[in-house]
Lab assay of single mutants.
Amino acid sequence: CHSECLGNCSQPDDPTKCVACRNFYLDGRCVETCPPPYYHFQDWRCVNFSFCQDLHHKCKNSRRQGCHQYVIHNNKCIPECPSGYTMNSSNLLCTPCLGPCPKVCHLLEGEKTIDSVTSAQELRGCTVINGSLIINIRGGNNLAAELEANLGLIEEISGYLKIRRSYALVSLSFFRKLRLIRGETLEIGNYSFYALDNQNLRQLWDWSKHNLTITQGKLFFHYNPKLCLSEIHKMEEVSGTKGRQERNDIALKTNGDQASCENELLKFSYIRTSFDKILLRWEPYWPPDFRDLLGFMLFYKEAPYQNVTEFDGQDACGSNSWTVVDIDPPLRSNDPKSQNHPGWLMRGLKPWTQYAIFVKTLVTFSDERRTYGAKSDIIYVQTDATNPSVPLDPISVSNSSSQIILKWKPPSDPNGNITHYLVFWERQAEDSELFELDYCLKGLKLPSRTWSPPFESEDSQKHNQSEYEDSAGECCSCPKTDSQILKELEESSFRKTFEDYLHNVVFVPRKT
């Protein structure tokens, strides 16, 4: 048989008469490798580009789960590009990614509803959504962080984005990388972005840091009482949809009607710091009717980097990364020049730590249904340095008659930039024990000054392991946590139920 035959053949030295091919099969003959313009397919066939392209389009058009959109890589027609490569849609070739590779997620039936953290986790790592997304989240724990972890990498949506009755959302900033909504599939009414009845939605994105392009379709905003109209108009300008909307697409009466839409800028007039305090004062603000001013709200939190936005980490279910302080308005003076500047002394802060701070007014709604208010920009203030805590785990070892090696770990709280350490030492008198000992005694162990690591005695271990207080009263049991108490109650309830079950099964009433 021919060298490319495997198993047997019907005619000697003829690659077209093989029972099976050793390498690849091409047009009725066995070959060692697939010549151009053919590609290896499933490690035994040679196919042309049209064959591989037909497989790709067949799966793409069917949208069946589990099928493969075949691509070409290293002269092979394979189910998908290997790690580190992405497909070129024009020629199906796998090309190296520039940075992290995109991950295209194809949605069944063309859309997916995100109504819980669990459903959001199914899209973790996706960068391109081939379909439409509907966000409908009523509640949950730590929602802002969970949504950002699972949806934060999405850069492109081919269909539309719909935010509907998501009472738990305060902001859409968890879509931190969303840059493009194509609108290839539109919501009824030709809408590519749809926001309806979101009672706590206050911000779409921080438009000073976020760009969003909507290729096709219109915007729809109705019944978002805490979303200011200025935020919607800003989205029109940034996304390129200005002029597409009709009169009733953006409701003037049901958007922002319960919001404090600040239209003035508060400026800080005085800032002073110490290692654990920050004193702030800002310019006074009074609405047209000074009785509408209820006070100020001061927001602050630790910020290692200057990239904080107002609604980071917030949701309507209680999660809030900001510390909020309510401040009463100052006494009002008739003389504008003698107006008191409101302020606040922030206490209990960490030394040498940068804080993000902003302040906003708290006002009631005027009778004319106009909203007044003022808010400052987010500023960054760093507390002063102070003395560091003591170095940890000092170790001293003498390696000769004239040297001592000293080692330690950095302090747990540096409280500033540590530039150097101060080492103090003092000579001590020799131990009298060394002169009084009889060095001729056998088995004498000389006193040693070398360091030995501390260890816990058996008594201390027994005390720590004991669940009861000892007789001397030195140790006591740790208080039980809520989960331990709940577990004990469940076990007790189970024992009672099981005992009742045994009584009912074992003891049967005697027939009379």
Rank of each mutant, 00 (worst) to 15 (best):
V104Y: 06
L107Y: 05
L108D: 00
G110S: 12
E111S: 10
K112V: 07
Q121P: 05
G125S: 08
L133M: 08
I135V: 05
I135A: 02
A144C: 08
E146W: 08
E146F: 04
A149T: 12
A149N: 14
N150S: 11
E156T: 10
I157Y: 00
Y160W: 04
L161A: 02
K162F: 15
R165A: 14
F174M: 06
F175K: 00
F175L: 10
K177F: 06
L180G: 06
I181S: 00
E184R: 08
E187D: 15
I188L: 10
S192R: 01
D197R: 15
N198G: 02
Q203Y: 14
Q203T: 11
W205K: 03
W207M: 06
I214T: 06
Q216E: 01
H233S: 12
E237W: 14
E237L: 13
K242D: 14
G243W: 03
R244E: 06
Q245Y: 06
E246I: 04
R247Q: 08
D249F: 09
T254P: 06
Q258C: 04
Q258A: 10
A259N: 02
E262W: 05
Y270S: 08
S274R: 09
D276A: 11
P284T: 06
D289A: 04
D289F: 07
F290I: 00
L293A: 08
K301Q: 05
A303E: 02
Q306L: 11
N307H: 13
F311E: 15
D312R: 13
C317H: 15
S319G: 10
S319V: 08
V324T: 08
V324Y: 11
P330W: 02
L331A: 14
R332L: 04
S333P: 04
Q339K: 13
P342K: 03
G348K: 01
K350L: 11
P351E: 03
A356Y: 00
I357E: 00
L362G: 04
G373Y: 03
G373D: 06
G373F: 03
A374Y: 05
I378C: 08
Q382N: 13
D384N: 05
S389I: 02
V390N: 12
P391V: 06
I395A: 12
N399K: 08
N399M: 15
S400F: 05
K409V: 11
